[in-house]
Design a protein around this nucleic acid. Structure first.
Lengths: 355, 355
DNA sequence: CTGAAAGCGCTAACAC
DNA sequence: GTGTTAGCGCTTTCAG
């Protein structure tokens, strides 16, 4: 019994002792902890001989630095917090991709949270991420409840809000006005002579940006003396099949439609697929307009209209702002970067009744 | 000069003093740091009165805990490392989504890294993430160079390899055999009577899984006494347009083709779009087979074949393994979870020459 | 149930 | 160039 207990103890001891620290590296290299520490980061004031010795020792004993401890000595860590509403929507994957791309080869690592378009959850996620004392934070959108804005401000770290420039801006922002994007597209469509325009969308609750595009779109129609011919909205995910179904419904209820504005490219593509089956000429008889300029918007080149957004560019620009503000002098001011979507109407331009 | 210096100092002091710590909470609540600490986590041995006092004080002074310091006292943090090859491919977004979903409402937060299918970079990313002393780690794939396997093993934390079950498994694994997936699909196609089968893929270097599917596919053809009629491979991203272009090329060079296997759904869909334009009957005259069962594989229901994979399920299962192993007794064993893809051939089944 | 002391692994600041 | 000292904010002992 006793022997076994001792054995267990020694095993446990071995596991605990396992953690290889800077001290071990220092001893193995025959220098002090400080010299080892300095040598392992970019050595400024360490002799070449010692740098070599330390790096060699570290590699040999398999030393893995402890960012936790290192960060504790500074006011914050080398983590960059990222809060996105969703990841199944590939738009945000592109954003995330832009962020990770910009953070490549830097000392920063993204810590990630998803809000699921839920304000409560978003608050909790942000709070949790702030507990890791990130050097900077990227959050999506400009519509936050007061409580969230409070902790964001109190964090006293560089903050970049992305995607949307319409609402409240706390610090820096990268994106564009979705209201304007919707407005501009409506103007462009009206210019091609289309007037009997409908809307079909998958705008889930709290997707403020899709709602803003729609609002801007309606505002432009209104200014031109038009209304939406029809207005369908479903709370769903499988957007291609939703587009297939709703375009059918819309066309039977409103055969006069000559254009439909969709909340995104997927649902517009779904509608196109259905129109191809029904042999409806797109865009000649019916223009279909999506949003984002994803790969799928080119499924049949020229057929779908869209606003091409630079998702990765937004993520990248946001991360770069943080890099500037976290590494450079703290004097760097807040920035506002607007990356306007590019309207692409394809064949619709060749078929405008005004030409 | 002197006055200014003092002023600057005092400003700096103010900023530094800014950090609100547990001590401040304790003082505000009139208890010791320890009582405050215990009260703020799930209090077991703290009087209800004190729990209330502490929580109230914390909220009032806007205290945000410091996970960095908390983690330093334990052997590792509440971070979960996640390393994926890529995020522009929506497959990995779905995986990530599954991971964050499973980590919701837990104390764990994902720390994220992208390898870009580059082994060097993957090694660096893993090493960097390990420096944050994560409680567990999720990595993609089963093909790692020796150096990477070494640090993975030395980390002594629960590890889950995802997506692929074919290669070297270090600890736990969630995914399926891509070799078998390719093999099974070829068998299924041969059973429908298709025999003049080609391959078109976007398999970038180090995308071991796509390569394994292709290898398994070829093995099944070989066993049945067949060869690939044609074999196109490009290193590109815009897969829809690649599919459009390559199917044209393949058909003019090999008009006898009755089936094409693609490396994924996007490129298969691109090919389908082109075939629709050319009025080629799919799948009657030409079967097109993708992989993953993404939304786009249903663009024209029944037309495309595919293997439906559960990406989110893989991410979720991997995260749950880590949760079990990080929170439960450490005695929990390694796990292997296989989530086989489901073959979906759509209209091809109704058109098989064997029926 | 509560508190005091010690220390997690590292680095800034100051000696030498 | 290099080493020593102190301490980041928290939690784990262990003593009340």
């Amino acid at each position: 019994m006793r022997g076994e207990a001792i054995h267990l103890l020694s095993v446990k001891d071995e596991n605990l002792k396992k953690e290889i620290t800077l001290k071990d590296v220092a001893e193995a290299a025959g220098v002090s902890k400080m010299t080892a520490s300095r040598a392992l980061r970019g050595a400024n004031d360490v002799s070449k001989v010692n740098v070599e010795k330390v790096k060699k020792a570290a590699k040999e004993i398999g030393y893995v630095g402890n960012h936790l401890a290192a960060s504790l000595t500074k006011t914050n860590s080398n983590l960059i917090g990222v809060v996105l509403p969703n990841l199944t929507n590939i738009v945000f994957s592109h954003v995330m991709s832009g962020i990770t791309g910009a953070l490549d080869d830097t000392i920063f690592q993204p810590v990630f949270g998803v809000s699921d378009y839920d304000e409560e959850k978003e608050y909790e996620v942000i709070k949790n991420i702030l507990s890791w004392r990130p050097a900077g934070l990227i959050v999506t959108g400009t519509n936050f409840p007061e409580s969230t804005k409070l902790i964001l401000r109190q964090a006293k770290i560089p903050l970049v809000q992305i995607m949307d420039t319409d609402g409240d801006i706390i610090d820096s922002v990268v994106g564009f006005s979705h209201e304007k994007a919707g407005y501009d597209m409506a103007r462009a469509l009206l210019e091609t002579g289309r007037e009997r325009i409908g809307f079909i969308g998958c705008i889930i609750e709290n997707d403020f940006r899709a709602a803003k595009r729609k609002a801007g779109f309606i505002r432009a129609l209104d200014e031109a003396g038009h209304n939406l011919v029809c207005d369908y909205n479903v709370d769903s995910v499988s957007t291609i099949s939703v587009g297939r179904g709703l375009v059918d419904e819309a066309l039977s209820a409103h055969p006069e439609l000559d254009c439909i504005y969709f909340s995104n490219d997927d649902i517009a593509a779904g509608a196109l697929f259905r129109c191809i089956e029904k042999q409806i000429a797109v865009p000649e008889d019916l223009a279909l307009i999506g949003f984002n300029g994803m790969d799928i918007s080119n499924c049949f080149p020229g057929k779908l209209g869209t606003s091409v957004t630079d998702r990765a560019g937004i993520g990248s620009a946001a991360a770069k702002i943080l890099l500037r503000r976290c590494t450079g002098e703290m004097s760097i001011e807040s920035e506002k970067i607007v990356l306007e979507p590019q309207i692409r109407l394809g064949n619709l331009l060749e078929n405008s009744s005004s030409s």
